[in-house]
């Protein structure tokens, strides 16, 4: 047993962290939210150069995975994407890549373009795609469909390319732009393999959203620590007050116990393990948002403070691609002790 990142994996995370810190993502996020995906697409290209999207693509299609996506490295990368609130359908693109791995014709056309970020794609899974939706991840919207080069939809055992999308529905997080894909469209693949691939894609989406949540939560915590060290009231930094310290300690606690669940899920990719990670990371990040909002006081309740970019993402991510209720049910389904 060696339940630790190896040096290369840890360095990969640090490299992405440095690159994204230097990129100044808040400006990119604000542009994305305003309907200007240009800076975001440029950032995606740099992430692709660093190999982020290729991690989700098999070697046969110009990716980095020997057989399929590389879960540990993807988790490392998506924690950093969350930490820096990288905009766009990052989860959907990787989940679509996982979906295509067993659909050769589609894979050949799209996977090399996904690996290079030439194609930014979105994905919607229909309730009917899965007789039992283990994460509660099916919903009506495709994220960032306006900025995406393609929107894939799965309904029943059919994979289609959406012919367009409806009007923008404003999300609680303006950087998450929601659209209903238009019905119909070109049929790309059909049969049981689509259904199986969609179920697998749902697992990847839940897993990567958990990683993204963890990163969002860690950023919220560290911003809050920095703020409470410098904000002075009653003649002392507010971070010296126990009520403040203890709330921050609880925030770290929840995040640090979500982290091993995420990497445990990476090693098994079993639905119950993914569901456990999704619940823990989603709840921990949301709790971190509540703590950050409270401890920043009124300034934290403003749109102009960049903190809002993380604050508003935590709650949608908690529910996206896996609701806490459905995920908890999946954890219990798998947990049947021998009589």
């Amino acid at each position: 047993m060696r339940f630790l990142l190896d040096d290369e994996q840890a360095e990969f995370g640090r490299t992405l962290d440095r690159m994204l810190s230097a990129a100044g993502t808040p400006r990119v996020v604000r542009a994305w939210a305003a309907g200007d995906p240009g800076p975001g697409r440029a950032l995606w290209s740099r992430l692709a150069e660093a190999g982020v999207f290729a991690l989700a693509v098999p070697e046969a299609y110009d990716g980095l995975g020997p057989g399929g996506p590389l879960p540990v490295e993807l988790a490392v990368a998506y924690v950093e994407l969350g930490r820096h609130v990288v905009p766009g359908p990052v989860v959907e693109t990787a989940a679509a890549a996982a979906l295509m791995a067993d659909l050769p014709a589609v894979a050949k056309e799209w996977l090399p373009r996904i690996a290079s970020s030439e194609a930014v794609v979105s994905l919607r899974l229909d309730e009917a795609a899965s007789p039992r939706d283990p994460y509660g991840s099916c919903g009506p919207y495709a994220l960032d469909a306006d900025a995406a080069d393609a929107v894939f939809t799965v309904s029943g055992d059919e994979l289609r390319l959406a012919p367009g999308h409806g009007p923008l529905r404003a999300s609680a997080d303006p950087a998450r732009r929601l659209f209903r894909p238009s019905p119909g469209g070109e049929l790309l693949a059909s049969g049981p393999v689509v259904r199986e691939s969609a179920a697998r894609a749902a697992g990847w989406a839940a897993f990567l959203t958990a990683a993204q949540s963890l990163g969002v939560g860690l950023a919220l915590l560290h911003r809050t620590v920095a703020y409470t060290k410098q904000r002075t009231q009653f003649g002392a930094p507010i971070g010296s007050f126990q009520a403040v310290k203890h709330r921050i300690a609880d925030t770290l606690l929840a995040l640090e116990f979500a982290r091993p669940l995420l990497f445990g899920a990476a090693l098994s990719m079993a639905p119950a393990d993914i569901a456990a990670a999704k619940v823990a990371a989603g709840e921990a990040a949301y709790a971190a948002a509540r703590t950050a909002l409270q401890l920043h006081g009124a300034i934290g309740y403003t749109e102009e403070l960049d903190l809002s970019l993380w604050l508003r993402k935590a709650r949608p991510l908690r529910d996206a691609w896996g609701t806490p209720g459905a995920c908890r049910a999946t954890v219990l389904d798998a947990s049947v002790p021998a009589p």
């Binding site: 047993m1 060696r2 339940f3 630790l4 640090e256 116990f257 979500a258 091993p260 669940l261 990497f263 445990g264 393990d273 456990a276 619940v279 823990a280 806490p324 209720g325 908890r328 049910a329 954890v331 219990l332 947990s335």
Partner: peptide
């Protein structure tokens, strides 16, 4: 049901947290 699930998740989290520390 959710509280029972949280107990399962918590036990797994504690187990894996300890595995990470033992590895360190």
């Amino acid at each position: 049901r959710d509280r029972v699930a949280d107990a399962v998740i918590g036990a797994r989290a504690y187990h894996l947290f300890t595995c990470a520390n033992a590895s360190r």
